[in-house]
Design a protein around this nucleic acid. Structure first.
Lengths: 110, 110
DNA sequence: ACAATCCGTAAGTCATAACTTACGGTAAGT
DNA sequence: ACTTACCGTAAGTTATGACTTACGGATTGT
């Protein structure tokens, strides 16, 4: 359920930039917005989306609000992706061998 | 570069349903569209986006076109996510300990 | 108490993208 | 050769969401 919101949240480029800014550690909103090509309220809205997706969490610090990465959303996406990984590798390998069989044996029909 | 398109592609719900239908193995377009609440051309457009993101590949089979999951796009996203994982766990753990210190020692300022 | 700082939300604008129907092109079967 | 099945693309419509400015609430310092 939460991996859906997380994927949707990470789809936006500037929202990813916001998220990436938290990789180096917790930061306040104004600090995150500094250097980004969008306004501070826009960053607040992005952080709201990231929070609802379980990708970040926040803590009040005086008049500021410090945000940091929440492993929950990240883990949900990873788990969802892993569900495909084995199938993908097997299917892809099968395709390669299928193609080999065709070209090598001269089964091309033209 | 390719993880961006992959994230953007996996953000759409119906596109995820298309992608998930390929988990059980290669399928033709019409077969994928069967049961989905959108038209077949819509599925073709979704497959085009998934293909450009490196998430699926296709092969002609007579008059049909068989699609299957491509591990490339999947791997790119996994790699990008893993980049955050360690940082996220460390930062989150630090937040937990920070909170413990505050509440237990009675440092609340009120 | 007052001023200043920091932040979230509301309202409104505008671009994007997800869908539809219509069409054309290719491969297989008769 | 003709029909049928399967698919991709074009054109047009519509909803969604990313952004802006304006505003109000909460906290800290003087």
């Amino acid at each position: 359920m939460t991996y859906e919101n997380a994927l949707s949240a990470l789809a936006d480029p500037t929202r990813r930039r916001v998220f990436e800014r938290l990789k180096s550690g917790p930061r306040a909103v104004g600090d995150i917005a500094r250097g980004l090509p969008v306004s501070r309220p826009a960053v607040s809205q992005h952080l709201k989306v990231l929070k609802e997706a379980g990708l970040v969490a926040d803590r009040p610090e005086g008049t500021r609000r410090v945000y940091y990465i929440d492993p929950q959303g990240l883990g949900a996406v990873r788990k969802w992706l892993d569900q495909f990984w084995d199938h993908a590798l097997a299917a892809f390998q099968a395709e390669l061998e299928r193609d080999e069989g065709d070209t090598q044996a001269g089964k091309g029909k033209s």
